[in-house]
Amino acid sequence: MIQLYRVTKYYEGVPALRDVTFSVDKGEFVFVTGPSGAGKTTLLKILFCAEHADEGQIVIQGMNVFRLNPSSIPYLRRNMGFVFQDYKLLPHKTVFENIALALKVVGTPYGEIERRAYQVLKKVSMETKLHLTPPKLSGGEQQRVAVARALVNEPQVLLADEPTGNLDPQSGQEVFRLFRDINMKGTTVLVATHDWETVRKMQRRIITMEHGRVADEGRHQTMRAGETQRHNA
């Protein structure tokens, strides 16, 4: 589903990613963890074609990102949902309109928009608040709407960058529960987070990044006390 081979990215000569190599299979749930500045966000931005890698190879859903024509990027993104730390909801549009925009962008017929928006909002338990604007919702609710927007076009891959960074622990847990349910229905999920408590609880594959490199890759079982302290720092 996703393959990276020796991906390197520089910002003004300073490497943000160095020789990053890993692959994610279809239907996998992967956490990308590491301290701030480790390169998690850069990695996700590259996967989402918001940034270009300077070196290496990236293949997403069989498409070589390096050979991708700029006009093809929107079509790749339609198969990938993205959840942001700051939700990126349009504040002047209602919950329904925020979801509808994602459907309109891909050319969904008008008749289908209402039904599909309602269905996806029901999935994240926000169907009763579809006429409210984001500022009237709590952080957790806003993130659930953002997840709904990412899912409404039924993407094969869901990418999330610190999705619980602005949420209280309980709301964070709800969002991760949503990700788990989505993953169980077959969507590949890649989440960048430094919420070690959740990572530990969910028992999924973890890619640990440090200084732009993949420091460790594998299924998390237990964490040494020293590591916990370092990651929580």
Binding site: P74, F82, K88, V105
Partner: peptide
């Protein structure tokens, strides 16, 4: 946002 969610130019 539209660019992020796959809107064409």
């Amino acid at each position: 946002l539209m660019q992020w969610i796959g809107a064409t130019k």
